[in-house]
Amino acid sequence: MINKFVENIELALDGVKSNMTFMFGGFGLSGIPENIIKELSNREVDGLTCISNNAGVDEFGLGLLLKRKQIKKMISSYVGENAEFERQMLSGELEVDLIPQGTLAERCRAGGAGIPAFYTPAGYGTEVAKDKEVRIFNGKPHILENSLVADFAFVKAWKGDTAGNLIYKGTARNFNPLMAMAGKITVAEVEELYPAGELDPNHIHTPGIFVQRIMQGENYEKRIEQRTTRKR
């Protein structure tokens, strides 16, 4: 067993520097690496390129890094819930690359899977296709999209073991397994950390080979963006 366990967040973030490219798992605020984001927001790192489906909300998630102007460029698919993000983008302070969600997922997956680029129909005929190679397959136009990798990928899982194997819960899985594959260094924070051998290998979502460091997360806030319920 190759031990991926790190005792604290300092060790988990060893090597993190300004001007790096980071990936952050999560969809909205669901499945985001809360502990790592909070720690990054307390550090003097800036000029970051962040790849994340969303950009958090004003006071939580990646919104914390935006507020301190640590992010130079965001690569996302949907940023609707963050007023500060919109302000920085429209004023030109923040560089933003908006890409279709499925393309974003596949670009991360491809980056981790050794596939440099692929063709997709998504975005053909739109701004997204600008300056991209178009090729017709089966009579339908597709655009060429490059894969993505990152200096660090930060992911969050429900359960993990010291070998770095991860299991996600519910829809908190989302981009986490794909980004875990695409990080030069992938750091996972988990709600429940087990010794290797405790998790059933049949149930692992992300094999530990993709994870370089695993740490125990704490005090998960798990904010709900839209609390919707029905009456009993």
């Binding site: 969809f27 499945g31 429900w158 829809t171 709900i224 839209q226 609390r227 319920t229 009456k231």
Partner: peptide, 16 residues
Amino acid sequence: FEGEEDPDLINAGKQT
């Protein structure tokens, strides 16, 4: 139902 919302179970609109 009220009280049974799970932050790990949302739709694309981020609703529970």
